[in-house]
């Protein structure tokens, strides 16, 4: 029963090798889907291409439904999965900064590496900026530590906070995501098509 490595079905020594393999496959799919073009992400902001929204939300809702089914049939112990801790203020401020970075550069950290792999200089500059940001963060952290930790909620999930059943929550997310896809299609039809 999964997860495979914590339950020793796959030895822990394979951890990094599997991560590398999945990373390469993920990068390949990103590049093959055209995500190494900064115009693709920019399309979400200007309304001429919503493929990023569709792909990432489809991945999210498919994995949500899949994980719940695997857990239900006893093939995956949901309780053993890592849940990232929630720092509310950091999530809000970080989200704004990251969103601004997306809008300015046309990449997210993952797609920028794909673009570097095919030799795009703008992606290289973007990634250098990304690392500079991380480097600077280490210096300013002592000053912003209180703000960083503000709103720490622990290892919680949205259904736990809302006090509803996880399955019902996933159903609502699926409906909302599909609604967003439909709305995106309408917006895309009204916005002038951009060829790239």
């Amino acid at each position: 029963m999964g997860p495979l490595i914590p339950n020793n079905i796959i030895p822990a020594d394979w951890n990094n090798a599997i991560a590398l393999l999945i990373g390469m496959l993920f990068g390949f799919v990103l590049e093959a889907s055209g995500f190494s073009s900064s115009r693709k992400i920019m399309g979400t902001f200007f309304g001429y291409d919503f493929v990023v929204l569709r792909v990432f939300f489809t991945a999210a809702i498919t994995s949500m439904v899949g994980i719940l089914y695997l857990d239900y049939f006893g093939w995956l112990d949901f309780g053993q999965l890592y849940i990232h801790p929630t720092y509310l203020m950091s999530a809000i401020i970080g989200g704004v900064i990251m969103g601004a970075g997306f809008a300015l550069g046309g990449y997210c950290p993952g797609t920028s590496y794909c673009a570097i792999a095919i030799g795009k200089l703008d992606a290289l500059v973007y990634s250098i900026g990304l690392f500079l940001g991380i480097y600077l963060f280490t210096f300013i952290y002592p000053w912003i530590e209180n703000m960083f930790n503000w709103g720490f909620m622990g290892y919680v999930t949205a259904p736990e906070i809302l006090g509803i059943n996880a399955n019902l929550f996933v159903f609502f997310v699926v409906i909302i995501a599909l609604g967003m896809f439909f709305a995106a299609t309408i917006v895309q039809r009204k916005v002038k098509k951009v060829e790239y």
């Binding site: 809702i61 439904v65 309780g79 399955n167 159903f171 699926v174 409906i175």
Partner: peptide, 23 residues
């Protein structure tokens, strides 16, 4: 398919909790 599967999740009877000791 996706809406159907998500809807079935809502209708599924509550599963038995794992009897395993937490890590």
């Amino acid at each position: 398919l996706l809406v159907g599967l998500a809807f079935i999740l809502v209708l599924l009877p509550k599963k038995k909790p794992y009897n395993e000791l937490p890590a």
